[in-house]
Design a protein around this nucleic acid. Sequence first.
DNA 1: TTTACAATCAAGTAATCTATTGATGGAAGT
DNA 2: ACTTCCATCAATAGATTACTTGATTGTAAA
Lengths: 220, 220
Amino acid sequence: MSMGPKQAILAEFAGVARALGHAHRLELLEHLGQGERGVDALAARVGLSLANASQHLQQLRRAGLVANRRDGKFIYYRLADDGVTDLLTALRRQSERNLAEVDRIRRGYFAERDSFEPVSREDLLERVASGLVTVLDVRPSDEFGQGHLPGAINIPLVELQNRLAELDPDREVIAYCRGAYCVFAFEAVAALRAQGRKARRLVDGFPEWKAAGLPLATSI
Amino acid sequence: MSMGPKQAILAEFAGVARALGHAHRLELLEHLGQGERGVDALAARVGLSLANASQHLQQLRRAGLVANRRDGKFIYYRLADDGVTDLLTALRRQSERNLAEVDRIRRGYFAERDSFEPVSREDLLERVASGLVTVLDVRPSDEFGQGHLPGAINIPLVELQNRLAELDPDREVIAYCRGAYCVFAFEAVAALRAQGRKARRLVDGFPEWKAAGLPLATSI
DNA sequence: TTTACAATCAAGTAATCTATTGATGGAAGT
DNA sequence: ACTTCCATCAATAGATTACTTGATTGTAAA
C-alpha cells in the first residue's frame, strides 16, 4: 500500500500514540517523571518481569519518549524531555473530560479523602511566598533526592506517623507526590487530618511542576 | 489480574491513546476538525470502505474523542470538544520533536515550497488588523462554509489558477487549509509565488485556530 | 580468565486488532 | 407494504502485540 506524505507522517504520530497505549507503559512513564531509574528498579515498582519491563521501555524509546544511558553494568532510563510530561497531561485532560469511567473509579477510591479542593501550583507558590504553609513531599527518599519542590520537606508516607513532630502544628500542610493519581498524597492528607492538622493536596505532582518550568531543588 | 485504582485509571488513559494509535483514525480526526461530516463523506475522503470507516469512528466514539447524531438516514460525526484538537496538537508537537523520520519526510516532499517562514496565528491577527494582507482559505467550499477565519476568502486549490483576478496583486496572501500537514496551503503558496505574488502560509490550520478560541466566521 | 550480574534478544503462545465480506437495522420515499 | 439507501453488526482470516522462558551480550569484580 503506497502512502502519501501525510499518511506517512500520520503513521509516525500513530506510533507515538500507540506507545502510550498500554497501562504498564504509562505507569513506567509516571515513574520516569520522577527522575532517572534503572530497569530493575522500574520493573519492581511497576510489578513487571525484568524482560517485560525492558521490552516496554524499548518500545517507549523507539517512539522517542524516553532515552537511556549506560553506567557500568546498569542502564538508566529517563524521559526524553519535558514535552513528554506535557503530552501525558494532555492525554489525562482529554481522558478525564470524556470518560465517566475515570470519574467513577476516582470517586470509589478517593471519595471522602479529598473533601477540600486541591491546591493549584499558583496557589502553592503564593502561599509559600507568604510563609504560611509547609510543603510536604511524601514520596520515597530516593525520588525526593533526585529533585523536589523548593522548600519542601520529605517524609515518606510510611514514616509519616512517626515523624509528625517535624511538622509545625500551626501551619497548613500542602502534600504532593508523583502525580495526579498518586495515592500517597491522598493518604498523607487523610492521615494528617485525622490528627487534627490542616492539610491539603497539590492538584498534581512533581513531573507536572517540573514540566511547567517552575523552580526545583535537589539534595544529592 | 486484580488492578489497583491507579492501574484502572491508567488503563482508561491507555485506551484513549490507543484510539489515536492508527493513521486512519488520525486522518479521520483531522477531517472532523474541519466540522461535522457524514460517515460516507469521511470514508471517501480518507479512502476507506464504508464499513471500515464506520468501525474506526466507533472506536473513536468509545474513547470519547468524537460524538455523533442522526439526521434522517444520515449519521454525522464531530469532535467531542476542542480539547481533542489540543490533544492532537500535543501529540504532533511531541512526535515532531523526537522523530527524525517526520522531518525527513517533510523535507522530501515539502522542501523548496516553504522557503519563507510560516506565519503564526498572532502575526496573522496583527497583519489582518493593519489591513495589509488577504487571508486565503484553499479548502473545498463545503469545509469553508462550515467555519473559517474571519475575513478569509475561499478559493479551493483546484480553482486557484482560474480565479487569480479575485486577489489584489498588491497585497500579500496568507493561505491556510486543514492543518499543519495539509498540502493545499503549500501548493497554493507555491502557485502564487510562481505568479510573482507575495504569499506565505499559516503555520497550522483551521482546527488549531478554532481550538485556540480565536474568532470564527461561517457562511451557511 | 572466570564469575556474576544487568539488560537485551529470540522464540513461542495467547490474546488483540484490522480489514473484508455479507447480513441486519433504521429511516425516508414510492 | 415495498424499495432504497445509510450505517452498523457479525464473522472471518491475517497481522500485530503482550508476556513468558531460556539463551546471549556487555561490564565489573574476583
